[in-house]
């Protein structure tokens, strides 16, 4: 059962074009179903992944996503790491503010994605690229 999920084995996708964002969504959806996340939690995680994958492409200039099914003892979860070697985020507080955007979007991608997951961690600095780790647990 656990081998089906590839527990602990990260699945890596390159994010270099529009259709890669779709592939990230599809992989996350498949693993979220296999991990038995509720339908609402699946929807939230896939939506968050879509926002962050698009950010990796549009703001980071491309990068990658690593999706892993993790074991938290009594429950399983999904962890996704998005990383890019782009310009990084100089003012993180500002970037996490609803409605703030430098790309002409709605400014909800980063702040909204944070609300949709259980754990959200961001490692970035100007000129250092960006690495965002999100986790959603099955309830």
């Amino acid at each position: 059962m656990t081998t089906d999920l590839g527990l602990g084995e990260p699945q890596v996708l390159t994010i270099a074009a529009d259709q890669d964002v779709v592939r990230v969504r599809q992989l996350v959806r498949t693993l979220a179903v296999a991990t038995k996340l509720s339908l609402v939690d699946q929807t939230k995680l896939v939506t968050a992944a879509s926002e962050l994958a698009r950010n990796t492409l549009v703001y980071g200039g491309g990068g990658g996503a690593e999706v892993t099914v993790i074991d938290g003892g009594r429950r399983k979860g999904i962890r996704i790491v998005f990383s890019d070697d782009g310009p990084g985020i100089a003012d993180l507080d500002l970037a996490l503010t609803d409605g703030y955007t430098t790309g002409g979007g709605l400014g909800l991608g980063l702040s909204g994605a944070r609300r949709l997951v259980d754990e959200f961690d961001i490692d970035t600095a100007a000129g250092q690229g960006t690495r965002i780790t999100v986790t959603k647990w099955a309830r």
């Binding site: 609402v40 939230k44 939506t47 609803d98 909800l108 609300r115 949709l116």
Partner: peptide
């Protein structure tokens, strides 16, 4: 619109 989509949209802030 599916119910789960509506719930997610609102939480996303849209």
């Amino acid at each position: 619109m599916r119910p789960a989509v509506a719930i997610t949209l609102v939480e996303l802030g849209l």
